[in-house]
Design a protein around this nucleic acid. Sequence first.
DNA 1: GTCATGTTATCGATAAAATCGATGTAAAGA
DNA 2: TCTTTACATCGATTTTATCGATAACATGAC
Lengths: 312, 312
Amino acid sequence: MTLIQLEYIIAVDTYRSFVAAAKKCFVTQPTLSMQIQKLEESIGARIFDRSKQPVVPTDVGVEIIRQARVALMESRKINEIVQLKKGDLEGELRIGVIPTIAPYLLPRVLSGFMQKFPKLQLQIWEYTTEKIIHELKAGLLDCGILSTPVYDAALAERPMFYEPFVAYVASSSDLFQKREVTSEDILADKLWLLTEGHCMRGQVLNICQRKRSMEPEGTFEYNTGSVETLKRMVDVNSGSTILPELSIADFDEDQLCRIRYFQSPEPVREISMVTTHNYLKKQAIDALEKEIIASVPKKFKSKKKKDVVGFD
Amino acid sequence: MTLIQLEYIIAVDTYRSFVAAAKKCFVTQPTLSMQIQKLEESIGARIFDRSKQPVVPTDVGVEIIRQARVALMESRKINEIVQLKKGDLEGELRIGVIPTIAPYLLPRVLSGFMQKFPKLQLQIWEYTTEKIIHELKAGLLDCGILSTPVYDAALAERPMFYEPFVAYVASSSDLFQKREVTSEDILADKLWLLTEGHCMRGQVLNICQRKRSMEPEGTFEYNTGSVETLKRMVDVNSGSTILPELSIADFDEDQLCRIRYFQSPEPVREISMVTTHNYLKKQAIDALEKEIIASVPKKFKSKKKKDVVGFD
DNA sequence: GTCATGTTATCGATAAAATCGATGTAAAGA
DNA sequence: TCTTTACATCGATTTTATCGATAACATGAC
């Protein structure tokens, strides 16, 4: 058994194809096939059922692959130990961030973080929650920054802060007259929503206590994945929307006028650093986590007197 | 990095010598040296300080080796998964047992256990507690059966039963007249003791509340490592000794006459299955554990109304 | 200091392996 | 049925691991 063979079976499991796996491993398909055959022979068990298309792991193969991931992970930690001692993390850090956090949070932390680890190649991927979870499990991402809980036992989530939602209302709206708003107010108003697939859409609907199934009535049907677009819709048209508080950091005075905070307990979303349980690049990820926690307003850090909103 | 390289550095760490490690790995010393050099080069750190004699790991080397043990362990579990699925454990199981347990416990369980795992090569090593702990940590033993607690964070102990101590008294002794004995009685009598290094010696001294430092007065100085010898000494000469209850199982009537049980709470020793935390051959070891628990008298299984005696 | 001894590093040769490109075979889709 | 896609097989080639011999080095005895 060699570590390379373990990498090969993990690649095949990930891509469900010998050809694709070979490409990702930078070897030819016969090489990969041969090595996997040798591994199967040496342990005395078939790992993949090649009669199915696409290939699937056998029963015992599933467990072997799970254990192979663990073994490979532990072997890679040896390199991390060295880098840690040298004090200079190298390699790449692949971060998945949901689109309703990324543009507002990352600019606050990335420059500082990159200065601390100059040799680290940062890769940011803006994905939906679902996609981030999938890629984390497949080992294609190192960590995810997303709204939790995600209720997945394979993942470890470490809450970093609780970001309040705020209402953004057109001056033509009735809500504009109020100093604070409640979820009932929102319900009555016309509401710009993110398109399906964004966890924040679910959270906003939960705030308004609208069921996902029943299409909210007073909602403009304009499918956008961008919080920025929601804001502009309110600016240019009318109605209201709900924004995460970090997104209003660089609003001008005119725009701030249209912000309405929620009555206590204000609705918030829990933002966590999510990894697999036995994760690599711990040093870098833990540092990023600290950097993020330090970068958000103090009042975000406690969830007391707040209403943590789920998205399911 | 290859698994073989990890094996090599672990061997060098274990034997503190390239030559000895090479021998144990069944390769020549240049081969082992080369591979370790390649590993050091690939991770970019020196693992061993060869200027010292015997060789010692560097600071970072210590951590690398610790992690290498983990990685190798996890990779070996892959083979166990296969064997587990086949339902037939192969390979060898190296068991360390202290001499005051081995001859009385093992005959009760080994034949049954070997029938269940016919392909398993059993290796029994009679060692002192100290030696078993050392070999477990070095990975030279798979599990140990010994008296606990041993207070070693690197090891996991799972108590299996609580074995009472009984007194064995010559008919010429005053104690012979009593139906039950107490630790005070023993203190007054002449006592045959095991030689230094046996944990049971410490336990017996603790029962009598004698300090280790002060050499017990009424003790015959005959250094033996065998419980059987203690018994014979009492048989042939006089005085008394303390035996573990399992050792009296095949006593004849005459010998049973000389047994005196302790007054409640009777002194007992805790006998545990000891492994490292992340141990291999789990399947076999767990089965052995069950076999042992099933083989001892029911009354051994609870520690209620008993006085668990340490040996330090 | 010198010598004997034991330990690790280095070297060239050789055996073992991993990999490649070409090709064969079997299954899935048009 | 034909085409396409995917995995297995084969021989050639490159790469790697290992060996035996030897050099370099450290340690302890004298």
